Amino acid sequence: MNPLWIISLFLGLAEVTVGVAATQAQGWIQGIFAVFSVLFPSAVAIAFFRVLLTKPFVLYAPKDYSDPPSIEAYVSALSSTAIGNRGNVEAAVRAAVQEVVIPRLPPGSKPDADVVIEQAVRAAREDLESRSVTIDLSGIDPSLSGQLLEFPADAVTVSNLLDAIYLAIHDHVDAYTYGRQWVLGDPSTGRTLTDIGTQAQGRNYTDRRSLGQVGVGPGARLLAIRNR
């Protein structure tokens, strides 16, 4: 059973219990049960859609897929990690450029098409980099040297960013250790981002601020490093 079944069973059992209790009560107590039976599912619905928008992967189990992936694979696919991987981004840009450019070229112009595609991909990559925040993971461990993550600066919250980075470095650091075991730094300014993430206000705190609100703008290149 996945979380969706558990939520539905819990909600159904709660509504049946409240309904039966309401038929056995009288006066203002019956009124309270009636109000509760209306407000409770509404509150659950609001919480459900909030989770669905922010972390949909917690609602499904790997076995829900026809070819069950690993835990990390399906969480990564449904989170911003898939967006952040530079290889995935460049592959998507190249595919989009080919889809647009090739049909508009005359037949038999493959050499010209290759040149045009490379130029378009290069221009798209440069434009993407100017609008994105790049994370260099080499400071966490030598084995991560050369691995870069890219995120759209205006479409990712601090929490999304840190969650995606953690999924990429989870073999080297423990969960909920940003600010203790690892941290993000800006080599261009010497700034260390110690005032963001769960460590800012406790483990249960979700940092929903945009990157711009914490001083990380488009084109920024941050380095994930060990916090010593």
Rank of each mutant, 00 (worst) to 15 (best):
M1F: 13
M1W: 11
N2L: 01
P3I: 01
P3S: 10
W5Y: 13
I6R: 14
I6Q: 14
I6L: 14
I6T: 13
I7D: 07
S8N: 09
F10H: 07
L11Y: 00
G12R: 10
A14Y: 01
E15P: 06
V16D: 02
V16F: 03
T17M: 12
T17S: 15
V18A: 14
V18D: 04
G19E: 08
G19P: 01
V20F: 08
A21W: 03
T23Q: 13
T23S: 11
Q24A: 14
Q24R: 15
A25W: 07
A25R: 09
A25H: 01
A25I: 03
A25M: 10
Q26D: 11
G27N: 05
W28Y: 00
I29E: 06
Q30K: 13
Q30W: 00
Q30R: 15
G31A: 13
G31C: 07
I32Y: 04
I32H: 00
I32C: 10
F33H: 10
F33N: 02
F33Y: 15
V35E: 00
F36Q: 02
S37C: 02
S37V: 03
S37T: 00
V38Q: 07
V38L: 14
V38Y: 14
V38W: 15
L39M: 11
L39V: 14
L39P: 01
F40Y: 09
P41A: 10
P41T: 03
P41I: 08
P41Y: 06
S42G: 08
S42L: 15
S42Q: 06
A43C: 08
V44D: 02
V44M: 03
A45H: 05
A45R: 00
F48R: 07
F48L: 04
F49E: 01
F49K: 00
F49P: 03
R50F: 05
R50T: 03
R50P: 00
V51H: 09
V51L: 13
L52G: 05
